[in-house]
């Protein structure tokens, strides 16, 4: 075993070292490998080794309409989902932001969608959306509305998937906002009340500015996760009908494990990674501001 004084002196290197080594082997190296693959054309199924083609694969991917469609869809899904979740989450948090009997119980119930296995949830929603026997259409019909085709129609598939995402993640936003509201200091409120401000003014001029950083961080974190949504889409539609719900993640999966075009998949992953990395910088900036 290492000499304990040596450990003591070099603790700031030795303590994070195993974790960093692990990350290097399991993450950094694979990313670099993928990056190098993006300059090749490699169809695994052809039985031939990767062939270096410079930026050719990039050009091919950028010319591919399916790529751009998937890109647009991914952003559409993310904005729609996170937008609704933010607004709903804020409303829910404002409703629940007081002491009442059973609050902890409600918080527990809010946790349930978050911790449930996405695959199982996705499957349950498939039955829910089933056009003939599903509950969703039965509910629409009994309200006298037109039944929809939900995930079986190219026009409604993304909103239908977004609805599942909203169901699953609005509670997360609510909990974040609730925690944020609870951490606010009471002084500004007291002085505002002394000044005779009404409820709305207090909310708008005091609560909002104080919770904005929390909301922003929550939104960015949620956006990244929404951007990466995979399990739900894969189990519910696998990108269908047609390609109408094929997001970048699903497209990359299809390219690698259905078409075995690893070079092209690597290019798509490169862009995906780039987008997520810029999101990460954003989180880090927001965090820094939080620390300062």
């Amino acid at each position: 075993m290492l000499d304990s004084r040596f450990v003591d002196r070099h603790i700031r290197i030795l303590f994070p070292l195993p974790a960093l080594l692990f990350i290097a082997i399991m993450m950094v190296f694979p990313i670099l490998y993928t990056f190098s693959l993006s300059f090749t054309t490699w169809n695994l199924a052809s039985g031939m080794p990767p062939r270096f083609v410079g930026l050719n694969t990039y050009i091919e991917v950028l010319k591919e309409p399916r790529f751009w469609a998937a890109m647009g869809r991914t952003f559409y899904f993310t904005f729609l989902a996170v937008g609704c979740e933010t607004i709903l989450g804020m409303i829910w948090a404002l409703i629940l932001n007081r002491e009442f009997f059973g609050k902890e119980g409600i918080k527990l119930l809010l946790l349930l969608p978050l911790v449930s296995t996405p695959v199982a949830i996705g499957i349950a929603w498939v039955l829910f959306y089933e056009p003939t026997i599903g509950l969703a259409n039965w509910a629409l019909k009994s309200l006298g509305l037109m039944p929809l085709k939900w995930i079986a129609d190219q026009n409604t598939v993304i909103p239908s998937l977004v609805l599942v995402d909203i169901w699953q993640w609005t509670p997360m936003m609510t909990l974040i906002f609730l925690a944020g509201l609870a951490s606010l200091s009471p002084e500004p409120y007291e002085s505002a009340r002394v000044d005779g401000a009404n409820g709305w003014q207090i909310f708008w001029h005091i609560t909002v500015p104080m919770v904005v950083p929390i909301i922003l961080t929550g939104i960015v974190l949620r956006s990244i996760d929404a951007f990466k949504t995979y399990d739900i889409i894969y189990t519910m539609t696998n990108g269908g009908p047609g390609f109408a719900s094929e997001t970048l993640n699903i497209y990359a999966y299809n390219l690698s494990f259905n078409y075995f075009r690893f070079g092209h998949a690597a290019v798509v992953l490169f862009f995906l990674f780039l987008i997520v990395l810029s999101f990460s910088f954003l989180v880090n900036r927001l965090k820094d501001r939080g620390h300062g």
């Binding site: 056009p131 003939t132 995930i151 079986a152 269908g240």
Partner: peptide, 16 residues
């Protein structure tokens, strides 16, 4: 056809 046919492979067709 039944609604939702664009998501149907043989398993779903057989089920209906």
């Amino acid at each position: 056809g039944p609604p939702g046919v664009t998501n149907m492979s043989w398993a779903q067709c057989m089920a209906v």
